[in-house]
Write a protein that binds this DNA or RNA. Structure first.
Lengths: 139, 139
DNA sequence: GTAGGTGCAAAGAGTTTGCATACGC
DNA sequence: GCGTATGCAAACTCTTTGCACCTAC
């Protein structure tokens, strides 16, 4: 738990019970979590916390770069994950919502080519693969 | 206009004034349009139509494969475009929301490799590049 | 002690739905 | 004429905000 407190201090946020537990849930999840997901994960641990606080903390974490927000094609909620140091992409299971992280990126050259061709300054990209994980593969 | 009527008949939808004008707006737009965008584009032409009809028609068009829905990282609205026959990707300007289509895809081999490595059945992927178009490039 | 954080309830955006009326086939 | 499409208003989901109280530093 101390690692979360250090992290918070590092980015200039006060240490609170709510922020610490949110970091803990986020660090221990392998999936992309919605605000609602976090809210119920926290409730499940017997801690009570307001949903609007979840939203507010997610906002400040995003601002500080601790988490990354994204929306999947498959739902309209915003989902969050701990910001990864390495640029990577996602395999998303359409059945169980599991997310597999893929490190690395095959697109660097392509991105540069596109930028030149279309006279576009590319800052970032998102690449998500949708399908079915091993457990959910329809037979 | 006749081309839209033929298209509607082809997918088995009744021809209505509302559906025809929606197809016309969609075919003549180079951007990704939200329901609200369509609603105001239609209003601008002096045609009155209910917003819920816009949503309902978008739903049926999506179901019939005429349009493709997507959400951008940058907003929470669902956006639509005419379904492209060729698999392609998007360059999205963060300043003016302009969208440039890129034909082709450099990811086929990569996708196959990933699928094998992670034992994942990949059905589809989305690839969007975010940045600034020539007119909006900050100097 | 003070600035910033939290909880609650209410408001906002975007989207969906129920029901009566209108229209395409 | 029948069955689907549309318009309107109300409901619904996800998210944000205002305000009073509380807590970290």
């Amino acid at each position: 738990m101390n690692k979360y407190q250090a992290l918070l201090r590092q980015v200039g946020l006060k240490q609170t019970r709510q922020r610490t537990i949110m970091l803990d849930v986020l660090y221990n999840s392998k999936d992309l979590l919605s605000a609602e997901d976090l809210f119920s994960a926290i409730k499940k641990r017997g801690v009570s916390m307001s949903l609007s606080t979840v939203y507010r903390i997610l906002e400040s974490f995003t601002e500080k770069g601790l988490v990354t927000a994204m929306t999947l094609e498959t739902s309209k909620q915003v989902r969050y994950e701990i910001t990864h140091t390495h640029h990577g992409h996602h395999l998303i299971c359409l059945a169980c919502n599991k997310v597999i992280h893929v490190e690395g990126c095959p697109l660097e050259d392509y991105e540069e080519k596109l930028a030149k061709k279309h006279r576009f300054q590319i800052d970032d990209h998102t690449l998500n693969f949708y399908g079915y994980c091993e457990a959910c593969t329809p037979r």
